[in-house]
C-alpha cells in the first residue's frame, strides 16, 4: 500500500492547480448564490474562449521553447481588418480570410526566426509594434465597429451553446489531435526537449518551427475574431498586452517555458481558471481594482507549487547507487 500512498501524494502535488480551482469554486460558491449555476459556468467558458484559443496556439510555441509576444497585435490586426475591410462579407467567408491573414502574420514571425535566425523574443516584440501600427493605420486610430452579421454570430447559440465555445471546442480538438496523434505533434515535443538532437535525428526542425509560429498566428487571429464578435467594437487598446494572460494561462496549465513539457488541455484549464477567478470576483462584488491582484496571486501560487514539485521530483529521481534497507 505504500506505493499507492506515494503515488497519491505525488498526484496531489501534480494537481495543485486543480485543487486550487476546487477551493476557489467552493469559496465563490459559498459567497454567491449565482456562482455555482450551469448558466454561469457556460458564461465563464464563453468569456474564457478567446484567451483559451490564443493560448492553445501559444502552447505550441512554448513547447518548442519559443515565445510569441505579438499575439495581442495579431488579434487587433485581424479585428481591424474584419471591421474595416470585410464589412460586407458574411462571417463564414470573412472568418477564414482573417484566419489566413493571421497565418500570414505568423509566417512573417516564422520567417524571421527560422530563416534569418533572429531570436523569437525580439522578432515578435518588433512585429508586435508593426502589427499594432498597421492596425491603427487601418482603423484610423478610432473605434472599429463590427458588422451586424458578425455580432449576430457572436450572440448566436447552437444547441444551446454559444458560438464562441463551439469555435473554441473545434480549435481544441484539432490541436489535441495534431499534438497527440501526428508525427508533427510528437516532433514538436522532440524539438522542445533538444533541438540539436532533433536535427541530428533527421527531423526537419526549421519546417516544424515555422509551422508552429504559423499555428500560433492563426490561433491569435481566430481569438481576435471570437473576442471581437463578443464585444461589438474594437478600441485602439483591443488586444493590448494580451500576450501576458495568454502566456499565464499556458504556464498555469503546466506548460514549461523551456520547452518539451505541457499540453493544450492544461492550457485550456489555465484559461478557464483565470476566468473563473475574475467571474467569481464579479459575482461576489469585490473591488474591481483588486482583480489583477487576486489573479496574479493565483498564478503565482500555481507556478510556485509547480516549481516545488519539480524540485521534489528531481530529488526523488536522483539516481540511487545503493539499495538501503528500509
Amino acid at each position: 500500500m505504500s506505493g499507492f500512498r506515494g503515488k497519491f501524494s505525488l498526484l496531489v502535488l501534480q494537481n495543485a492547480p486543480l485543487l486550487l480551482f476546487a477551493v476557489l469554486v467552493i469559496v465563490f460558491g459559498l459567497m454567491s448564490d449565482r456562482f455555482l449555476t450551469p448558466i454561469n459556468f457556460v458564461n465563464i467558458v464563453n468569456q474564457a474562449s478567446h484567451i483559451a484559443i490564443i493560448a492553445i496556439g501559444m502552447t505550441f510555441v512554448l513547447l518548442i521553447a519559443g515565445i510569441d509576444l505579438s499575439v495581442g497585435a495579431n488579434m487587433y490586426l485581424s479585428a481591424a481588418i474584419l471591421g474595416v475591410f470585410l464589412v460586407g462579407m458574411p462571417p463564414l467567408v470573412a472568418f477564414p480570410v482573417v484566419a489566413l491573414l493571421g497565418l500570414a502574420f505568423g509566417a512573417v514571425n516564422a520567417f524571421m526566426i527560422t530563416q534569418l535566425r533572429v531570436a523569437a523574443f525580439i522578432t515578435t516584440l518588433a512585429t508586435l509594434f508593426i502589427g499594432r501600427g498597421i492596425a491603427l493605420y487601418f482603423s484610423g486610430n478610432k473605434m472599429v465597429p463590427f458588422s451586424k452579421s458578425v455580432l449576430a454570430f457572436g450572440r448566436a447559440t447552437y444547441l444551446g451553446v454559444p458560438s464562441a465555445i463551439w469555435v473554441f471546442a473545434i480549435v481544441l480538438i484539432i490541436a489535441l489531435v495534431v499534438l497527440k496523434l501526428t508525427t508533427f505533434g510528437r516532433q514538436v515535443y522532440a524539438i522542445g526537449a533538444d533541438p540539436d538532437a532533433a536535427a541530428k535525428a533527421g527531423i526537419n526542425v526549421k519546417r516544424v518551427v515555422f509551422t508552429v509560429y504559423c499555428i500560433c498566428g492563426v490561433c491569435a487571429a481566430v481569438g481576435g475574431l471570437v473576442s471581437g464578435s463578443q464585444v461589438a467594437v474594437a478600441s485602439s487598446t483591443f488586444g493590448f498586452q494580451k500576450e501576458f494572460p495568454v502566456i499565464a494561462a499556458a504556464v498555469l496549465g503546466g506548460t514549461s517555458l523551456f520547452g518539451g513539457r505541457g499540453g493544450v488541455l492544461g492550457t485550456v484549464f489555465g484559461a478557464v481558471l483565470i476566468q473563473t477567478v475574475e467571474n467569481g470576483l464579479v459575482m461576489t462584488n469585490a473591488n474591481p481594482y483588486i482583480y489583477p491582484l487576486v489573479i496574479s496571486v493565483i498564478i503565482f501560487i500555481a507556478v510556485f507549487t509547480d516549481s516545488s514539485r519539480t524540485t521534489v521530483l528531481e530529488r526523488l529521481e536522483r539516481r540511487k547507487i545503493r539499495v538501503e534497507p528500509d
Binding site: Y189, A193, D194, A197, K200, A201
Partner: peptide, 11 residues
C-alpha cells in the same frame, strides 16, 4: 550513434 545520445527524454 553519437556519443551524446540523441534521444528525447520527454518521449
Amino acid at each position: 550513434i553519437h556519443q551524446e545520445l540523441n534521444l528525447f527524454r520527454n518521449l
